[in-house]
Design a protein around this nucleic acid. Structure first.
Length: 641
DNA sequence: ATAGGGTTAG
């Protein structure tokens, strides 16, 4: 074994070996968290000369180890700059050392590393080097830079690089379009595409693939259609990739008809095409069509892959089809023995959501992928869905012993479990844990925290979390308002409702349930009616049974039994046992015989076991008998005498 | 070109 220590910074190490044979070269950095390939090259059958690219910004020592038959036959070893310290091998001094020269390919390789490592600071550093070497207008590097900035999450820097480039080639445009699309600036991507075309430049296949990927929601169907038209006019014949991308685009934009039209006309289809079409159906909730398509796919003799299976399992879930899911499971075990984490997790969640926690657990236990956070979260969520909060807590603890770090979604799920059990102390601990993992500012985690504290009875903590949030969405407001509504603090709820409007967030049916129930608990009749009207008028929220029941309850409780009764009869829903029972209760308190009799009849009709209704009807009958007795009192009296 | 886990009411 020969090893070599490098005094950094280095750009490139060049190794030339004199003989043919096996040579292993390992590279390791002492204290680096950057990605660095371990095994560089293994076997040389001829001319064993190659380069190792070393990240010049590593602030650590790098060690390269050579083993294998050819290890003692180095002809020379040189670097692009600096010098080498060798442990046990004397080599010729570096002959090709050119201290200040950096090759374009080296810089490009370094940029790629920065991109995959998502290291914006390093990317900027290399950008600086590029400028220093006067390579700013090199298209190859500039394009690579746009890509790197995109991967590092900085559209701004990508944009600057793109604009600074004087002679943009089609790759530059494509990279910039992809960067916009990746970061949710679909409209920017579209505008860029338009200006590209307007400048008389020719978009290529990649341009179209990027543009189609940028149409990822019903809002972009119009753009998608335009691109589709352009695409057909631009190419005489579209290849399978482009057509599949079209299916995918129409699927994501919610137009299955268009997707199907493309699919239907295709002469050649592969696994991806079939899966994309299934995905388009699945997107619209057309799970049966997914299943039918899978049968056709089988008949067409196209072998399914992992992604096809995942899509199909999803449809089983949507159809609540446990038997079908089980059949697919056996099928998958036959076809895909190395199912991998995503497919394994999909199976766990299919079983859980199709009503078989046992199968989900069995699947989970058999999977060897215990280092995967998504798998753990799926299993924890399954327990929460089955109301097994203690089991969820237990799993969470077990997960930590595997050194798997909880993420925002795990916390959201765990907080729900704790909220259901109203475990205040555990909730606090989990809150601290979330702070440690730096996910407490996440909107979903914050919303779950607000709810957790609210259900644990601490409106104060809930409000504190809410106030510390950088931004609020509809769910945040609903969670906060629900917390105060539960305490019956009608005035506070109305105050928050106003603030919510000030933040330009529109209330939905859940907000109004909270507002109305708060008014109801606080006995605020006029306010309740006011918000009920506002909900229907100003916000166009269609009231459901709960909303009506809430108002009817309140009207009954304050003695406006007649109005309550009318509301229940007028509403476009069947009132149900709860609604009539509640009215019956109100009639009892306010001694309203007329409406009480009817209400009791309805309750008794729905549920003859209902004690209150039976009692009322019996009482009512007794009263009738009493009345009869009173009317005929004298007669009885006379008869007795 | 196709892909697994999440938050709000009663």
């Amino acid at each position: 074994m020969i090893s070599l220590r490098l005094q950094l910074p280095y750009y490139c190490v060049r190794v030339v070996c004199a003989v043919h044979g096996k040579l292993n070269i390992f590279c390791a950095c002492s204290s680096s968290n950057r990605p660095f390939s371990n095994l560089i090259k293994q076997h040389f059958s001829h001319k064993p000369a190659f380069c190792i690219n070393v990240d010049p910004f590593l602030q650590c020592r790098c060690r390269i180890v050579f083993t294998g038959i050819a290890q003692n036959h180095f002809k020379n070893l040189s670097t692009s700059c600096g010098h080498i310290e060798l442990d046990s091998l004397v080599l010729e001094p570096p002959q090709h050392a050119q201290p200040q020269k950096v090759s374009v390919s080296t810089l490009s390789a370094l940029l790629r590393k920065c991109g995959t490592a998502k290291s914006l600071a390093d990317a900027k550093h290399i950008h600086f080097k590029i400028r220093k070497h006067g390579l700013e207008q090199n298209n190859f590097l500039a394009n690579q830079l746009i890509w790197t900035y995109d991967k590092c999450g900085s559209v701004k820097d990508a944009e600057k690089t793109f604009q600074a480039l004087l002679k943009k080639d089609i790759v530059s445009w494509n990279m910039m379009i992809a960067a916009y699309a990746q970061h949710g600036h679909e409209e920017h991507a579209y505008h860029l595409f338009c200006s590209l075309v307007n400048q008389g430049l020719k978009p290529d296949k990649v341009t179209f693939l990027n543009m189609l990927a940028a149409c990822n929601g019903p809002l972009f169907l119009r753009n998608g259609r335009k691109i589709c038209m352009f695409l057909f006019s631009f190419f005489k014949q579209l290849d399978i990739t482009l057509l599949t991308a079209l299916i995918n685009m129409f699927g994501k934009c919610g137009s299955v008809e268009d997707a199907w039209n493309v699919f239907k006309k295709m002469v050649q289809r592969n696994v991806v095409t079939w899966t994309a079409m299934m995905s388009a159906f699945a997107h619209q909730g057309l799970s049966k069509d997914v299943m039918q398509l899978s049968v056709k796919m089988q008949k067409a003799g196209v072998r399914m892959n992992k992604i096809t299976f995942i899509t199909m399992l999803n449809s089983c879930t949507n159809l609540q089809a446990l038997p079908a899911g089980k059949i697919f499971h056996t099928f998958i075990v036959e076809r895909q023995p190395d199912m991998g984490k995503i497919l394994g997790t999909a199976l766990v969640s299919m079983y859980s959501r199709c009503g078989s926690l046992e199968d989900a657990y069995h699947m989970f236990d058999r999977l060897p992928l215990k280092g995967d956070i998504v798998l753990w979260t799926a299993m924890i969520t399954a327990c929460v869905d089955y109301d097994l909060s203690n089991e969820a807590l237990h799993l969470f603890q077990k997960m930590l012993t595997y050194h798997v770090k909880a993420n925002r979604i795990t916390f959201a799920s765990m907080l729900e479990a704790i909220a259901n059990e109203a475990l205040y102390l555990e909730g606090k601990l989990l809150h601290f844990h979330a702070v440690e993992e730096d996910v407490n500012h996440d909107i979903v985690v914050s919303n779950a925290l607000v709810t957790m504290y609210s259900k644990c009875g601490s409106t104060r903590d809930a409000h504190a979390v809410f106030k510390r949030m950088p931004e609020h969405d509809l769910i945040s407001w609903n969670a906060l308002i629900a917390s105060y509504a539960q305490q019956g603090q009608g005035k506070e709820v109305i105050r928050f409702f106003q603030s919510m409007k000030e933040e330009q967030i529109n209330p939905d049916k859940i907000t109004f349930i909270c507002v109305l129930s708060a008014c109801s608990r606080a006995g605020m009749v006029d306010e309740a009616c006011y918000y009920f009207t506002m909900m229907k008028g100003e916000y166009k929220v269609k009231p459901n049974v709960e909303h009506y029941r809430c108002i009817a309850d309140l009207l009954g409780r304050v003695g406006r039994v007649k109005e309550a009764d009318e509301l229940l009869r007028e509403m476009p829903y069947v009132p149900g046992e709860m609604a009539w029972s509640s009215l019956l209760g109100a009639c009892k308190i306010h001694s309203n015989m007329e409406h009480g009799d009817d209400a009791a009849d309805y309750v008794f009709e729905i549920n003859p076991q209902d004690a209150a209704a039976s009692l009322w009807l019996a009482g009512s009958k007794a009263q009738e008998e009493d009345k009869y007795l009173v009317e005929n009192y004298h007669l009885f009296h006379q008869m007795q005498n």
